[in-house]
Every structure is written in C-alpha cells, then in structure tokens.
C-alpha cells in the first residue's frame, strides 16, 4: 500500500439554501416531537419519537456532517456505529418492555 497523505475532503458543495431548508426541517421535526409527547398515543409515542429522531439524525449526519459526499469507508464507519446503537436500543427496550 502506498503511503497515503491526509487529504482535504472532497465532494459536492452544499448551497446555503439547502442548509437553511434542512435547519427548518429539523426545527419542524423538533416541534412535532414536542407536540406528540403531549398526546397520549400509548406505546406509539416512543416509536414516533424514535422515527423522528432517526430522520433528524440522518439529515444532520448526511448533510451537515457531509457523510453523503464522503468515501464508502466513512459510510461504513457511520453504519457500524448506527448499527451498534440500534442493538443497544433494542436490548434496553427488551428490559423496559417486559418489566413489571
């Protein structure tokens, strides 16, 4: 393997308009989370909150953190971390769901 040098990250520039749109989407999703928390949806409250959190984090990771424009290896890194986090969530819920 050749000795590699650390390079500036490459990729398509994101326009300020997109950043603002994403920011507005994040604010809207936060507001929806707060509203849903006040409605009694039983077990679905948590599911909806988690889905919204997933969408928000995907936007941040892909756009603000530029992972969308990065090499495959970085996407794999993020996927591994996300996968581990999912398993941690699952196992924690395995306790909370069955607890009496």
């Amino acid at each position: 393997m050749e000795q590699q040098t650390l390079t500036e990250h490459k990729g398509a520039p994101t326009s300020y308009g997109i950043y603002v749109l994403i920011w507005l989407a994040l604010m809207a999703l936060t507001a929806i989370t707060a509203v849903v928390a006040g409605i009694n949806l039983a077990a679905f409250t948590l599911v909806i909150a988690l889905i919204i959190a997933l969408v928000k984090s995907s936007l941040v990771v892909n756009v603000f953190m530029h992972v969308k424009y990065e090499d495959k290896i970085f996407k794999i890194f993020v996927a591994i971390a996300g996968g581990v986090l999912s398993v941690i969530f699952l196992l924690t819920f395995a306790d909370v769901y069955f607890r009496r």
């Binding site: 196992l91 395995a94 306790d95 909370v96 769901y97 069955f98 607890r99 009496r100």
Partner: peptide, 11 residues
Amino acid sequence: AGMSQQADMIF
C-alpha cells in the same frame, strides 16, 4: 437490579 426476567435471560 430490577431488570425484566426476559432481559436477564437474553443478557
């Protein structure tokens, strides 16, 4: 610690 028995078995 008060975890559910199902979680105990999984872990």
